Amino acid sequence: MAAVAALLLSVGACSSSEPSSSDSSSSKKISGKVTVFAAASLKESFTELGKKFEADHRGTDVTFNFGGSDALAASITSGAPADVFAAASDKTMKTVTDAHDTSGAPAPFVRNKLEIATPPGNPKKIRTLKDLTRPGTKVALCDKTVPCGAAAQKALDASGLKLTPASYEQDVKGALTKVQLGEVDAAVVYTTDVRAAGRKVEGVEFPEAADAINTYPLALLKNAPNAAAAEEFIALVKSAEGRKVLTDAGFLQP
């Protein structure tokens, strides 16, 4: 009887240990730093998603480098260590793909359209894109090499308008800041930036923006230091939860 009892205990111990061993081998945990290079217009939504990612994956640290897509692309092709690149246009992403610095083909994940930002109350009574060309009106634009600047120029060209801005900024947040500081009367930025600024600016929509909508591509980088975690971050961006965060920020679905 003693021998039988010992045998039963031994079998029970083995059977209870097997599931835990199987579970540990099937669950792949990720950890470490994830470096994301992203267009400045993604700052608010990606920061929110980064916090969500860290909460879901304890032991991870999502670090962002926000800026003009052209400058970010140049940094990547020059060897800057990064895991993920989210650009504000296909053209700037092409700089990275042409250098064979992506792992697989980039995928579009959102679109964005332009809007005019003015100080609260719209002191200059700007109602149309043409109003930006009125004498004495100070306007900030993104540099033409930056996606938001290229889109603004496309809208102006389509309307047959010529505009000499008071300043060219290296990214969309720079142009928006000029409005918030009262240094210009208006800036051509993205709808998402106007929404993110809240009551600090007033937005003016214009029909020509429909002809200059930018598509944002997302890619895992070829030499990603933390490819496993980077793939999970990309999955979060593309998930239903990620789409909701981006849509709530004003982005359009691709």
Rank of each mutant, 00 (worst) to 15 (best):
L176E: 10
D193H: 07
V194S: 05
V188N: 14
L176K: 01
G174L: 08
R195P: 14
V204K: 03
A196V: 06
V184D: 05
V188G: 08
A187W: 07
T177Y: 12
V188D: 00
F206E: 02
D193C: 05
R199F: 13
E183Q: 15
L181K: 15
G174F: 04
V204D: 06
Y190D: 04
E183L: 14
E183W: 15
V189A: 10
G174K: 00
T192M: 04
G203I: 07
D193Y: 02
T192L: 00
L181W: 06
G174N: 12
P207T: 06
A175Q: 03
A197H: 07
F206I: 06
R199E: 15
T192P: 03
A197N: 08
D185A: 05
K178L: 08
V179N: 10
Y190L: 10
G203S: 12
E205H: 12
R199I: 14
D193W: 09
T192Y: 07
V179W: 13
E183N: 08
Y190V: 02
A175W: 00
G198V: 08
Y190A: 12
P207K: 00
G174R: 00
L181A: 10
L176V: 13
P207N: 01
K178W: 11
T192I: 00
V204L: 04
D193F: 05
K178I: 13
Q180F: 09
T192K: 11
A175G: 10
F206W: 03
Y190W: 13
G198E: 03
A196F: 03
V184W: 10
E205R: 14
K200E: 12
K200D: 11
G174Y: 04
L181S: 07
V179G: 07
L176G: 00
G203F: 04
L181T: 15
V201I: 06
V184C: 08
T192V: 09
T177V: 13
A175T: 03
A175L: 04
T192Q: 05
G174Q: 02
T177Q: 15
A196E: 08
A197Q: 13
G182P: 07
P207D: 02
P207R: 09
G182Y: 09
V184Y: 00
V204Y: 01
V189G: 04
V201K: 02
L176T: 13
